[in-house]
Design a protein around this nucleic acid. Structure first.
Length: 157
DNA sequence: GCCAACGTTGGC
DNA sequence: GCCAACGTTGGC
């Protein structure tokens, strides 16, 4: 079991939007960064957990928990000429963009603000604080548990 | 809205 | 393969 962090701009797609989906799940489409794609394609496994992070907003923060419920899915928006994410170099036979389906589990009791994470000595090594532009990123188990504690959740065992 | 960081593109 | 130009991300 591994842990991840997924970013989304709440003005375009928020954690509550995910909660409101049928089955609280959605295909994580539209990622067009190769490093993020490689994580989606090669590393994320079914059953892994991910934080849902709100970026580019007034209070950037981790706001909820999701579970990966399906993997290895070609991103259909790459095949759609009407999509903002259309990529003519991606074909059905050789899809360039592979992604996963995520399901909302629960919102954090208290969102964990970026500004507080920046001040927390335990979290200085987080990818979020060092490679802030990567939209799909790993979270260590230690950081995962620490953030859950900050969020007012009981630690898992 | 600004701008630093950094990823991508394309000419050579 | 280098690197300048350009585009995007995302915090502030």
């Amino acid at each position: 079991m591994n842990y991840w962090l997924l970013k989304s701009e709440p003005d375009s797609y928020s954690y509550s939007d995910l909660k409101n989906e049928a089955d609280s799940s959605v295909l994580w489409d539209g990622v067009r960064n190769y490093q993020a794609r490689n994580i989606l394609r090669d590393q994320i496994q079914c059953g892994d957990l991910a934080f849902f992070y709100h970026s580019s907003c007034k209070y950037p923060a981790i706001v909820g928990i999701c579970r990966i419920v399906a993997t290895g899915i070609p991103d259909p928006t790459a095949f759609d000429p009407d999509s903002d994410y259309f990529d003519p170099k991606s074909s059905q036979e050789d899809p360039r963009w592979i992604t996963v389906r995520v399901q909302a589990l629960e919102a954090l009791a208290k969102p964990v603000l970026l500004k507080d994470m920046k001040l927390d000595p335990e979290l200085q090594e987080m990818v979020l604080l060092n490679r802030s532009r990567l939209s799909v990123q790993p979270v260590s188990e230690r950081h995962w548990q620490h953030i859950l504690n900050l969020a007012g959740h009981k630690a898992n065992s």
